[in-house]
Simulated scan of single mutants.
Amino acid sequence: MALEVGVLIGYLVIFLAVLLGPFKIHVIEENLEPFLLVCGIAAMTLSGFTEIPGEEMGWNSEIIMESLTAPLHVGDIAGIPIGIFQIVLVVGLIIYKWHAPIHKVIRKLTDMLSVKVLGFLLIVVLGLSSSVMSAILASIILVEVVNAMPLSRKSKIDLTIVACFSIGLGAALTPLGEPLSTIAISKLAGEPYHAGFTFLLDMLGKYIFPGILAYGIIGMFFLGKVSPKDQGMAAADYNETVKDVIMRAVKVYVFIAALVLLGEGFKPIILEYFIQIPSGILYWVNMVSAILDNATLAAAEIGPALSELQIKSILMGLLIAGGMLIPGNIPNIISAGKLGITSKEWARLGVPLGLISMAIYFVIIFVLGI
């Protein structure tokens, strides 16, 4: 059954607020995490006025617990729960303690390899390894290396955005990389796909590996435009306090909790309309993952009844679009928070790069049928 007009208008208002608010209103940009949390709460409340057969909509204890625990638990190591909050906090404190020798090593690498070569390696190596070390850890390594490189602020932002596209793609190759890949494999574990650990690697590897290499080359192009004056700049001095490290982890916690609520809150729209859309169009519609949790979208859209083409189109659309704006991907959130990248600064490169990437992959998957 179609959703009521008033509910649809409410969702449209929330969607536009999340999409445009950070660009148009400075106070929202400065307080993005609590703003998204408020929007998530509004979306969850609005979903309570909808009815989807077989689905429980609106607030319940399970959703509340998921929003509170999602930032704290993405997996287990030796039986100990590991989450985004803990990783950001612990690694941040380690870097705070030993930032001098860490940055010294990075600067030596820059002198040995040049910023262009180091940028290429950073994008490609982190993209390829994010499926093993996780997108979270890859993004933390990224921002520390970028911060220590002798580049202008614009070049650092460009390099970070391109690298986050690469990390977002590479993390999907195994269930260890990010929640989206874990959910996709669990949804396809039975007949007819019997998805295992290497399922996404086998299905998407031929798209992702060349994409990571292409992003590495693109990153070199942006660094190649840096003037000699910029390349001669000293690397940014480390000036964080323990309070800064803790507050960044807290902001990441709030950010992830907000995305969980936004994703669950918009579930009626996803279930009622998205899953009815043909795969070629859904590929483009999934650009909403630039502001919504792509794991929630994957959970709602992926299922064993889909063809391989449909699965590929859904996943690739979600993965690429996730790099376009800050809320779209965990690496984006961590990197923007650490380097102080604004929504406008991210969108300046993230949106055109994402659209071009979407267009290229659309031709490859749907036109050429590769």
Rank of each mutant, 00 (worst) to 15 (best):
N31H: 13
M287A: 11
A78V: 15
D76V: 15
K344P: 03
V254M: 12
P278Y: 04
L113R: 07
G196N: 07
L68H: 04
F15K: 04
G127W: 07
A138D: 10
P192Y: 13
A295G: 06
V145I: 15
V18K: 01
I41L: 07
G280W: 13
E66P: 01
S357D: 00
M220E: 05
I94E: 03
L188M: 11
V125Q: 07
G58P: 12
I82L: 04
F221D: 08
A42K: 01
G10V: 11
G317P: 08
L271W: 00
N329F: 04
G328H: 12
G340T: 11
P352K: 05
D237E: 14
I333E: 04
M324A: 04
K267R: 15
F221E: 10
I360N: 00
T198S: 02
L37F: 15
L19K: 08
Q310A: 13
T296R: 12
L180S: 02
G369T: 09
V351N: 11
L126I: 02
I9T: 15
S227P: 08
V285W: 04
I167Y: 07
M316S: 07
I356A: 00
V367H: 02
V260S: 01
L113E: 04
L126S: 09
I334P: 10
A195Q: 05
T198H: 10
I365T: 09
P228R: 09
G6R: 07
L46I: 15
G265S: 02
A295S: 15
L169T: 09
L200W: 00
L8R: 02
L118R: 08
L113N: 04
L89M: 10
P327S: 04
N329C: 05
A172R: 06
F366R: 04
E30N: 12
M316L: 14
A100T: 15
M65T: 14
L72W: 14
L72K: 12
A135P: 01
I365E: 06
L113W: 14
W98S: 08
F49K: 02
I52Y: 01
I161R: 00
L16D: 00
L19Q: 03
I330W: 04
Y253H: 05
V105E: 05
E4V: 14
I140D: 03
I82H: 03
A163Y: 06
H26M: 10
Y361I: 01
I123G: 06
E51T: 10
F199C: 14
I95Y: 15
G170L: 11
Y215R: 00
I275F: 01
V27H: 08
P192E: 08
I161A: 12
L282Q: 00
E51V: 13
C39M: 15
V91G: 01
L180C: 05
M149D: 02
F35S: 02
F120I: 09
G216E: 02
I87K: 13
F255Q: 03
M57V: 13
G224P: 09
Y283S: 09
K312H: 08
L204F: 06
I311L: 07
Y193F: 14
Y361A: 03
K187F: 11
I246A: 04
A299G: 05
I330N: 00
F221R: 03
I291Y: 11
L19N: 08
R248E: 12
F197I: 11
V27W: 14
G79V: 14
F209G: 01
P327D: 05
Y11N: 07
A2C: 02
S313K: 09
G190T: 14
M324W: 08
L173T: 06
P192G: 05
G340A: 06
A235G: 15
